[in-house]
């Protein structure tokens, strides 16, 4: 390239003449470049989700005042009504003082029917296609708790087999959640009652938390979430099951819009065998507390140092 340059410069020295570019060609080239650039951006015309100005400048959840929230919730409700024709209510239930949620799952009882998986979907408005499920039920072989030999795809007819045991895994609501440490923008954090939540309006979609989770508990909306109006659950929480955006992370929140009102989470209510137990860890009379004190419980991947509040037991 610079051979030319040298020659040019030599020429310059000799002829006092500079290499030039004609104005005509320069402008024509610039026109071509801009035309091609503009046309190359044409797929943006069909963008599936374009944030509104308000959404674009919306602050972090923790920086929102009560008036801001009111306004935002009203806009979201109106948007849901417009998109789905469903009159939804978005609540922002706050943690209850003195409550810390915990979960116990009795592997000795679980029959692997996967009803919890679908009750969760029914409650939490996850995308149906591509399918997002918070709970994964692993069919485990005898004599091992090796996750690598577990079967995630066993068909319905292989549920409740006595030769295997079944291990549902969802977010473990860790005391030391690695996912919130790694988030560059604090879009995910642990609430006072121990639930790890995501601000769907703040997440930048870097998926670092998904890489940092030892339980594969987080789900990312690679595509625009799809759910039909009939299946939309109108009882929504701002930090839990309101419709999600494309390109943001989501996860199990122990159905906080339900549980903070004193109800049971959907997965627990639907369990036909009573394998699941949910309650307030700080209440010595709660079921979970009694199980943890009386039975031999364990947590998944203790070596990861995440201190989960989701306990497993092999009780009768």
């Amino acid at each position: 390239m610079s051979t030319e340059e040298k020659r040019n410069n030599e020429m310059e020295n000799e002829d006092q003449q500079q290499p030039t570019i004609s104005r005509r060609y320069f402008l024509a080239g610039a026109a071509c470049l801009s035309a091609a650039t503009v046309v190359s951006l044409s797929p943006l015309l069909n963008a599936e989700e374009v944030p509104s100005t308000d959404e674009f400048i919306q602050k972090h959840y923790k920086q929102l005042s009560d008036e801001d929230k009111k306004e935002i919730f009203a806009k979201l409700e109106a948007g849901i009504d417009k998109q789905y024709g469903v009159a939804a209510t978005i609540s922002d239930t706050q943690p209850i003082e003195g409550v810390e949620f915990a979960y116990v799952l009795n592997l000795g009882r679980c029959i692997g029917c996967r009803k919890c998986v679908y009750a969760c979907m029914n409650e939490n408005n996850q995308s149906r296609s591509p399918q997002k499920q918070y709970i994964r039920v692993l069919k485990m072989k005898q004599g091992t708790v090796n996750l690598e030999t577990s079967n995630h795809d066993y068909p319905e007819k292989e549920a409740s087999s006595e030769d295997f045991f079944y291990m549902p895994v969802a977010c473990q609501q860790c005391r030391e959640p690695k996912c919130i440490e790694v988030c560059p923008v604090k879009a995910t954090w642990k609430e006072k009652d121990g639930i790890v939540v995501v601000d769907y309006n703040w997440c930048i979609g870097c998926r670092y938390c998904e890489a940092a989770c030892p339980y594969h508990a987080r789900r990312f909306n690679f595509a625009k979430p799809q759910i039909s109006a009939q299946e939309l659950n109108p009882d929504m929480g701002y930090l839990s099951n309101r419709p999600r955006y494309m390109g943001v992370m989501e996860k199990c929140t122990f159905c906080l819009h339900k549980t903070r009102r004193g109800e049971y989470p959907a997965c627990m209510e639907v369990c036909p065998t009573g394998s699941r137990k949910f309650g307030n860890l700080r209440d010595p009379e709660s079921e979970v507390r009694k199980i943890i004190e009386q039975e031999r419980v364990f947590v998944l991947k203790q070596e990861a140092g995440t201190l989960p509040k989701f306990y497993y037991t092999f009780a009768k």
Binding site: N46, A47, E48, F220, N221, F222, A223, K224, G247
Partner: peptide, 10 residues
């Protein structure tokens, strides 16, 4: 990239 912006990381 603009196609990816339009339809997500899917």
């Amino acid at each position: 990239f603009s196609r990816q912006l339009a339809h997500g990381l899917y």
